[in-house]
Amino acid sequence: MAGGHMKYRQLSRDSAHRQALLRNLVTALIKDESIHTTWPKAKEAQRMAEKLITQAKRNDEIARRKAQSILYTPHELLPKLFGEIRERYAERPSGYTRVLRTEPKSRYDQAPSAILELVDGPRDMRFAMTAAAVARDRALGKRHTDLTIKNIAKVTRYRKDGREKFEEMVEKIKDLGL
């Protein structure tokens, strides 16, 4: 990256291909709420998804047209974006997505992989992992670590009925005997 600061990652593609790729990733993210891709693609798609959700929170005609120009299947996803997702993040000021690094998808090219997910959703990885840690600590009779306490606060802060849903998840994991 000689020449100084870059505004965005080029992802070794021309601009039309890059925009199509990012639109496809964001469409899949809104549809499935979690996608597995390479880390640089996830970081760029995260930028676009954050802006799209911020637009959706405004809930006006300009925001709808902007979302319609980004999503590949707007007739399917606009009701979800301006309904369920907008309501989920109404109180959250920002930070609607999370990128979690994972092992490389392909063992041949060893490209850094990541999971891009919407936070506070049904497939929230941190929520499940924190619930598993709490269930394990309770089963062993141990005190929670400072990190676990911070994660509990993070995953329940903006989630509607966060503490109750968290306790339900802990009970489910405890019943599984993990």
Score class of each variant (00 low, 15 high):
residue 60 D to Q: 07
residue 39 W to Q: 12
residue 125 M to Q: 14
residue 88 R to T: 10
residue 115 I to K: 07
residue 107 R to A: 10
residue 106 S to G: 00
residue 114 A to G: 07
residue 80 K to Q: 12
residue 44 E to I: 03
residue 115 I to S: 05
residue 167 E to S: 05
residue 148 T to C: 08
residue 10 Q to A: 11
residue 65 R to M: 14
residue 57 K to D: 08
residue 97 T to S: 09
residue 132 A to T: 04
residue 67 A to F: 10
residue 38 T to G: 04
residue 114 A to P: 03
residue 138 R to D: 01
residue 52 L to T: 02
residue 88 R to N: 08
residue 112 P to G: 00
residue 143 R to Y: 04
residue 21 L to S: 02
residue 21 L to K: 06
residue 167 E to C: 07
residue 70 I to H: 01
residue 12 S to W: 07
residue 6 M to D: 03
residue 113 S to L: 01
residue 53 I to H: 04
residue 57 K to Q: 14
residue 152 I to M: 10
residue 93 P to Y: 09
residue 121 G to L: 04
residue 23 R to H: 09
residue 7 K to L: 11
residue 23 R to M: 08
residue 117 E to G: 01
residue 21 L to P: 03
residue 60 D to Y: 05
residue 65 R to L: 14
residue 87 E to V: 10
residue 114 A to K: 01
residue 84 E to M: 11
residue 102 T to W: 05
residue 129 M to P: 01
residue 73 T to R: 11
residue 141 G to Y: 06
residue 59 N to Q: 13
residue 171 E to N: 12
residue 46 Q to T: 00
residue 7 K to P: 05
residue 129 M to W: 06
residue 178 L to K: 05
residue 83 G to Y: 03
residue 54 T to S: 15
residue 65 R to D: 15
residue 83 G to D: 09
residue 166 F to M: 05
residue 55 Q to N: 15
residue 91 E to W: 01
residue 69 S to G: 15
residue 172 K to W: 07
residue 162 G to D: 01
residue 74 P to A: 09
residue 119 V to M: 08
residue 106 S to Q: 00
residue 52 L to R: 00
residue 95 G to T: 00
residue 118 L to N: 06
residue 142 K to N: 13
residue 35 I to N: 04
residue 17 H to C: 00
residue 172 K to C: 00
residue 68 Q to P: 05
residue 34 S to G: 00
residue 34 S to H: 10
residue 10 Q to V: 09
residue 161 D to Q: 11
residue 21 L to Y: 02
residue 61 E to A: 14
residue 6 M to T: 04
residue 93 P to M: 06
residue 160 K to Q: 12
residue 146 D to P: 01
residue 163 R to Q: 12
